[in-house]
Design a binder for these strands. Structure first.
Lengths: 109, 109
DNA sequence: GAATTTAATCGTAATATTGCATTATACAAG
DNA sequence: CTTGTATAATGCAATATTACGATTAAATTC
């Protein structure tokens, strides 16, 4: 069937999964890596970074933008991308709670 | 083609993407959520937690195990699952570097 | 040893993702 | 207005993921 049963899970679980999914591709990690260093850049730069076609890179950028991780502003004929800092910090807080602020008080199996 | 071009990216980018992909499904988040609270439990419990079939739940458990997030030990006819605490902390450190220890010294686009 | 319990695997179907070529659009420079 | 450059949109092919029923495997119970 291939259709995720969203209704089985909480809003938080679905949102967290979706955010992680947006990051779960090496090309998209590479894009984020570059933007964390470069602060901002245009699509053409990111095509070089990924080593993929313009069409494919554009698609990855769209996914990151739809997930709210990136912002883009038009700059002449170019598109200027950067990390959406507010959203990034929001997500970082969620991830911190889920992943990092975990206390294991018992050993197990 | 649907075949990710792994060769275009660094080892770290591929590994990080793979780890995030293992978590990028609400059922797998729900499984982790449960194990973080319960410390350990058997497959049957997790079938109830996900609300999916035993076969599907087992498949999700396999993905989490293959990603190194879970460990399982045989307990009679049951399988006892728990979080691999060492790997979890390793991944938490990687995620902390990538996501949380980020300084934005400029605003942008 | 037969029946039961529990979980993994196989086979199959539906849907999603990845990637590219091609086409369309938008704008700047000449 | 035409040409070149940058990005977006569309359509297609290959592969991956999600999900389930049926089957298999292993330990337990009777």
């Amino acid at each position: 069937m291939g259709l995720t049963k969203t209704a089985n899970f909480t809003e938080r679980q679905n949102q967290l999964a979706q955010m992680l999914k947006a990051l779960a591709h090496p090309a998209r990690i590479a894009i984020i890596d570059h933007l964390l260093k470069a602060n901002e850049c245009i699509t053409g730069d990111l095509v070089e970074v990924t080593g993929l076609s313009q069409a494919t890179t554009s698609q990855h950028l769209r996914e990151l933008k739809e997930a709210g991780l990136l912002k883009g502003t038009i700059d002449g004929t170019s598109m200027n991308y950067c990390i959406d800092q507010a959203k990034w910090k929001e997500n970082a807080a969620i991830l911190k709670t889920f992943f990092i602020d975990v206390k294991f008080d018992e050993t197990c199996c």
